[in-house]
Amino acid sequence: MAEWKEPFQPSDDAGAASAEEGVVILDGPFSVAVTFTPEAALRTSENLRLAAKLAREQRERALRKEVSGL
């Protein structure tokens, strides 16, 4: 039996985006398989960019807290 792994750890791999017949296909990571209109793809990329910025700030805050608590 394969080794059990905790499901859905955050992926360190980026999804692969491609253009096909006038739409945007996002493939992976994991089982992600979504097709966007170009407009929705642009809005999603902006949402991702903003969320990534916030997530980085959260990590930095957590790290500062950990260091100051030592």
Binding site: V23, A33, T35
Partner: peptide, 11 residues
């Protein structure tokens, strides 16, 4: 069947 769009299936 695959939970994809038809464009994605084509690809």
């Amino acid at each position: 069947v695959c939970g994809l769009t038809s464009v994605h299936v084509n690809r």
